[in-house]
């Protein structure tokens, strides 16, 4: 079985995330890492590999700046077999359409696998649309937002907490899957894993390696434009009271009444 896991390099959510003057996400000034939510996809890919046996190959694929190689390397340290970073200045500032195009073309070059696995959302854009777009571009079924995964041969069943119901979704491989953090903790790279990763194949591709026209991606080819970004005005400091002998409850009730919530 072949699995491609799409891993994104994102600004650290606990750092001060910012925008550049051209309104693109600052991906260089802020420390980046493998998107936390994509670690769950790597973990599930590795569990499927362990279940299926040794000839299963897991390839970690990332589109991002040169520094994004860290995200691919982390996936290799966790246990992925191969890594591919697609990096090209022309890609900078791409929207979902551009990103999904490059991902889809890279997946075709790798060879469409049995499973394309994604996180449920990137922690910076949180669009949750790339997996559906990949499914559309690759003409594959999608089983998305999985909280539990079951496979039997080429049959896949997932459970998901949908908007209004808990659903079981089934499809036959090849398919695109996205997984949530409900699938279970992602492993930490072991010392052995870190050493082994150094010897694993890791390639960097440019757009020309993919035969993708640079005109089709990047900020200028984006199908949507950001006109303005503004830091949210800091919240004016709220009133904080310390409860003593029930005074907290009274103050809370007064506050809620003053705002007409009662």
């Amino acid at each position: 079985m072949n699995i491609v896991v799409c891993v994104k390099y994102v600004p650290d959510a606990t750092a001060d995330r910012q925008f550049e003057s051209d309104n693109t996400v600052d991906r260089v000034g802020v420390d980046g890492l493998l998107s936390e939510l994509d670690e769950y996809a790597v973990e599930q890919a590795l569990q499927l590999k362990e279940k299926a046996g040794d000839d299963t190959e897991v390839t970690a694929l990332c589109i991002g700046p040169e520094k994004a190689v860290d995200a691919v390397r982390k996936a290799l340290q966790m246990g992925a077999d191969k890594g591919i970073l697609v990096s090209d200045e022309a890609i900078a500032g791409s929207d979902y359409l551009g990103t999904s195009l490059v991902l889809a073309e890279a997946i075709k070059k790798i060879g469409v696998p049995d499973l394309v696995m994604c996180g449920m959302a990137s922690t910076d854009a949180s669009g949750s649309v790339v997996p559906a777009m990949l499914a559309e571009r690759l003409d594959l079924p999608q089983v998305t937002f999985a909280s539990v995964i079951e496979t039997q041969g080429d049959q896949v069943r997932i459970k998901r907490d949908g908007d209004t119901a808990t659903e079981v979704i089934g499809a036959t491989m090849p398919l695109v899957m996205s997984v949530t953090d409900q699938t279970g903790e992602a492993r930490y790279p072991s010392f052995k894993g870190i050493m082994a990763a150094k010897k694993k194949p890791l390639e960097t591709w440019s757009l020309s390696d993919l035969g993708v026209d640079a005109e089709l991606v990047g900020l200028n080819a984006s199908w949507s434009a950001v006109e303005e970004t503004a830091a949210r005005p800091p919240r004016t400091a709220g009133e904080i009271v310390t409860d003593e002998d029930g005074s907290g409850a009274t103050a809370l009730t007064e506050f809620l009444a003053s705002k007409k919530f009662i």
Binding site: R235, E239, I240, T242, D243, G246, A249, T250, L252, L256
Partner: peptide
């Protein structure tokens, strides 16, 4: 917060 209570929720909430 706009309004905060430093206290034990098990006593503050039932009283409120």
């Amino acid at each position: 917060v706009d309004f905060g209570v430093v206290g034990d929720l098990h006593s503050v909430l039932p009283a409120a």
